[in-house]
Design a protein around this nucleic acid. Sequence first.
DNA 1: CGGACAAGCTGA
DNA 2: CAGCTTGTCCGG
Length: 595
Amino acid sequence: MGAPQPPGRREAGSQPDLRVARVLPDVAALAARAFDYLVPASLAAEVRVGSIVRVPLHGRRVRGWVVALPEEAETGRRLLPIAKVSSVGPPADVLALAEWAAWRWAGPVTRFLRTASPPGAVRELPPAAGPGRGPPPRRAAGHAVEVVRAPPAADPFPVVEEAARGGDALVLAPSLGEAAMVAARLRRAGVPVAVAPREWARAAAGGCTVVGARAAAWAPVPGLAAVVVIDEHDEVYQEERAPTWNARDVAVERARRAGAPCWLTSPCPSLAALALAGGGSVRAPSRSDERAGWPVLEVVDRRDEAPGLGLYSERLVALLRAATPEERVVCVLNRKGRAVLMACAACGELARCERCDGPLESGGELGMRCRRCGLAQPPVCRWCGVGRFKALRIGVARVRDELELLAGQAVAEVTGDTPPAGPGGGFPAAAVLVGTSAVLHRAARAAVVAFLDFDQELLAPRFRAGEEALALLARAGRVAGGREGRVLVQTRAPGHEVLDAARHADPSRFTVVEGARRAALRMPPEVALARVSGPGAAGVVAQLDGGQLDGVETLGPAGDRWLVRAGDHRSLCDALAAVKRPGERVRVEVDPLRA
DNA sequence: CGGACAAGCTGA
DNA sequence: CAGCTTGTCCGG
């Protein structure tokens, strides 16, 4: 090509308003490659960094984000014009945060930009909701993150109010329902509020505190003055699919970048949160306040129980018999593994293998698979030909029958399909309920929460089992209403530090022991972990092993999964970012909850 | 991702 | 050899 004259270059005197925009198309296969476009003069006023645009790309129109407004184009080729500005998009600080998250969780930046974008097109922003008080003076470095420990029955709202008093805050709650309640209370207190993602435009306009669930970590908050994450230990803050970003970690980084204080509230602070707060910065309640907010813990040592009693100790039976609709008993039993048996939804016949007659489970290439011989087969009943099956929860169903006999009154099973207790109705009225730990999210209140087999939680083969077990006890404590209620735990490990912590209403009794154990085992938060799996995983691991990276080691494989371990996230994420992704699929989970 | 284009396959 | 499928390449 002769005499290259990049059309993107701005020359003195020639169309000074014809600018260049660098656009990141929302096309996964492009692996976050940005392209330069011309900004037509008619769109110049609307195009900003973050704007959501439609651009021609290879013969079609695709959505994308303006990620920069460079002085001149990167290439000498002829630039195409932006076709349309579809919507106001994430502000520049959120864009930068998305780039950081793409590094931190080894994922495509477009995934984060999608979460950060308004749910529908926003043509222009409404007027600001309030004066926009702007960020307060920065706090001393190193004290930006504070863990606020408050027992299960305590109300975290005062922390939210304290944060919102200092300026426009970002408040995250585990669910949209809880976020809506916090928002309503803030409004009653006279604080302008936007609920994300519904009121994205209102949030972007500024002058209000923004409240939402996980995705609200990406909401626009101009003049961010404080960040609060309620119940930071809750696993719902972490995205299950890769990239496995965690809203708590995003919120902490956001606060750091804004120079704003960040409060992480929890009855049982995660080791990750304690590490983020730098070890020392924990605001703990007085001993008596904390004690008042945890339930009375009763531990039944199953080793002392008469053999043959199974899951039903004398103490449990006594509580069951005393249960009334006002003084409910909620029994929790987490079954091992997944659905036990499948039965035809039409004729009720058990689904059995066409080769060996073994029981079928859902999964496999054709939809169902033999649990005994592994043969894949279609989900069609061999007896009546109907293709619909239901899972028989043999475990809980049988336990329900037996509890009913022992209690001498009706026992209702609560599953994920049971509507939550509340004005909607449909929640069982029985004095005794039984279900998996989902029952703790559905039942509003109970006098007693009984864990029939807590060893499944305490001794689960996962490095975070202890944290999860303590979180369950805290959850139970909330359902039981703190000191008003009691939590019964049947276990063969009554001396476990999780039970010790709950008994003394002092979660540090657990975190101190657990932290030392993690350090000894070289597990998070002492180190940073990632799990790599999928057909291309071996190639990725080979590159990491061959790269002579300081302090990065790979462990495995276990099945088709490897672990990558490094001293901290900087070396882990730098190493992962340097890997060339092979053609085959690779799943990278940074900070896996289960490893 | 999805359009463009080339190479490969098929049948009259 | 037209007309179709399948595979590979690449985007401003």
